[in-house]
Simulated scan of single mutants.
Amino acid sequence: MQSVTFQVPGKPQGKARAKTVRNKSTGNIHSYTPEKDMLYENYIKAQFQNRANGFYLERGKPVMLRIIARFLPPKSVSKKRQLDMLEGRELPLKKPDIDNIVKVVADALNGVAYHDDTQIAMVIAAKTYSAMEGLDITVEEYVG
């Protein structure tokens, strides 16, 4: 089974909604992806390419994504609660939403790790606390 595992350092971000604007002179409506999202997607793509060694799932091959989003415990909580968070007894119930994290990863790897994100057949995603924030991502061919 083909797979690539890589990390994206830094605070996990979710995909924001597309911005829609109307051109006052022509009346045309146009949507675009916010620059912050584009930069984060390019960062994910670069981290993947550093580890890929030519990995690419052609059209027609099903894809499985595994994503672990790691967040730092808040500094404002007690040491005992921080320990509970780091040991997995308390999970991050905060933004970004897990579905938006999945979306930004899927869009970033579109055309780079696989032909199109319609190939994604299974996603396993979780949010957790950790001493180091970031994303742990595995892209693999799904074999059921």
Score class of each variant (00 low, 15 high):
Asn28Pro: 04
Thr33Arg: 08
Leu39Met: 10
Asn42Asp: 15
Asn42Ala: 15
Ala46Gln: 15
Gln47Phe: 05
Gln47Cys: 15
Gln49Pro: 05
Asn50Ile: 08
Ala52Cys: 07
Asn53Leu: 09
Asn53Trp: 06
Asn53Ile: 06
Tyr56Glu: 03
Pro62Arg: 05
Pro62Lys: 04
Pro62Ser: 07
Val63Ser: 00
Val63His: 01
Val63Ala: 03
Met64Pro: 00
Leu65Trp: 00
Leu65Ala: 00
Arg66His: 13
Arg66Phe: 11
Ile67Trp: 03
Ala69Arg: 00
Phe71Met: 05
Pro73Ile: 04
Pro73Glu: 04
Pro73Met: 05
Lys75Trp: 07
Ser76Phe: 12
Ser76Cys: 07
Lys79Gly: 14
Lys80Tyr: 13
Lys80Ile: 13
Arg81Glu: 15
Arg81Phe: 11
Leu83Trp: 07
Asp84Arg: 11
Met85Arg: 02
Met85Gly: 01
Met85His: 04
Glu87Thr: 15
Gly88Cys: 03
Glu90Pro: 02
Pro92Ile: 02
Leu93Gln: 11
Leu93Asn: 10
Lys94Gln: 12
Lys94Ile: 14
Lys94Ser: 13
Lys95Tyr: 12
Lys95Ala: 10
Asp97Tyr: 14
Val102Gly: 03
Lys103Glu: 14
Ala106Asp: 01
Ala108Asn: 02
Ala108Ile: 03
Gly111Asp: 07
Val112Arg: 01
Val112Leu: 05
Ala113Pro: 00
Tyr114Glu: 01
His115Trp: 09
Met122Tyr: 09
Ile124Asp: 10
Ala126Ile: 06
Ser130His: 12
Ser130Val: 03
Glu133Gln: 13
Leu135His: 00
Asp136Lys: 09
